Amino acid sequence: MTVTLPILHSHYHTFRHGVHPKDFKEYTHHLPIQQMTFGELFIIPLSQHIGAPAKSLVKQGDRVFRGQKIAEPGGFVSVAHHSPVTGKVVDIDFFDHPGGGKVESILIEADPLSDQRFKPLPPLPWEDMEVRELLQQIQHAGLVGLGGAAFPTHVKLSIPKGKVCRYLLLNGCECEPFLTSDHRLMSEYPEKVLLGAKVIKKIVGAEKVFVGVEANKPDAIVKMQEKAK
């Protein structure tokens, strides 16, 4: 895979005007990624993205395991949902939604006796799979964008007929003040980021992959360059 990463220089091209607030990255850029502690109750809305809501695969009283698929896609612009915890389905009803109003959701009570360990699935032989199969895997993995619409990833990666994607650009700039999640991801898991780039490159048929990283993340740039060799 051809991956192009920026080389640090003492001068950078920029543009006039615009807003350049202090980034405040120093508060968290050095802190490792941590897993949150498990709560007692989990509400999983069946509408977590733009498009059709997912369809529940469980019913009240069912025992579910962390990572288990509990809802299937409700259409092409829809993805599967998985249980974030091992526990019991105590209700399926309409609950308040961050986007406003109420949506059908699955309420799961965590099992206090479970160690909440997640059993990883075996690696997919993605290099031998067809694009159609990879897109289906992405849809059923529940992957969506992290923007406001949470647009399903498999839809984003579906190149329209007659169109060509020559370049794949990974945006690791993370220019927003305070945010350092992309920084930590590239610093701690560069090989996983690049593996994802390889899979996407195959899906969209890109010739080259470019990774954009802002100059205030020199350690992430070094880690990504090392793994891209």
Rank of each mutant, 00 (worst) to 15 (best):
residue 129 M to T: 10
residue 21 P to M: 13
residue 56 S to F: 04
residue 24 F to V: 07
residue 60 Q to N: 09
residue 124 L to F: 08
residue 68 Q to D: 12
residue 150 A to P: 00
residue 62 D to L: 05
residue 83 S to H: 06
residue 180 T to I: 10
residue 82 H to K: 09
residue 146 L to M: 15
residue 185 L to T: 15
residue 206 A to W: 03
residue 94 F to V: 00
residue 73 P to S: 08
residue 141 A to Q: 11
residue 8 L to G: 00
residue 132 R to D: 14
residue 145 G to D: 10
residue 111 D to E: 10
residue 154 H to G: 14
residue 85 V to G: 08
residue 37 T to I: 06
residue 146 L to C: 07
residue 29 H to Q: 14
residue 179 L to M: 13
residue 183 H to M: 03
residue 36 M to F: 04
residue 46 L to C: 09
residue 153 T to W: 01
residue 87 G to I: 05
residue 22 K to V: 12
residue 137 Q to H: 14
residue 219 D to E: 15
residue 107 L to R: 04
residue 177 P to K: 00
residue 48 Q to H: 01
residue 96 D to K: 02
residue 222 V to P: 00
residue 94 F to A: 00
residue 196 G to E: 13
residue 105 S to C: 07
residue 158 S to E: 05
residue 109 E to C: 02
residue 163 K to R: 14
residue 148 G to K: 05
residue 145 G to W: 04
residue 177 P to E: 00
residue 28 T to D: 03
residue 94 F to L: 04
residue 74 G to N: 07
residue 152 P to M: 06
residue 73 P to Q: 09
residue 117 R to E: 11
residue 62 D to P: 06
residue 141 A to Y: 08
residue 39 G to T: 10
residue 211 V to K: 02
residue 223 K to N: 14
residue 185 L to R: 07
residue 169 L to S: 07
residue 30 H to A: 14
residue 5 L to V: 06
residue 207 E to D: 15
residue 188 E to D: 11
residue 3 V to S: 04
residue 184 R to C: 11
residue 174 E to I: 03
residue 52 A to K: 08
residue 226 E to H: 10
residue 74 G to L: 05
residue 170 L to I: 15
residue 72 E to R: 13
residue 108 I to H: 11
residue 13 H to G: 12
residue 67 G to A: 02
residue 193 V to G: 03
residue 138 I to E: 03
residue 210 F to V: 06
residue 173 C to R: 08
residue 194 L to D: 13
residue 98 P to I: 01
residue 15 F to W: 11
residue 146 L to E: 02
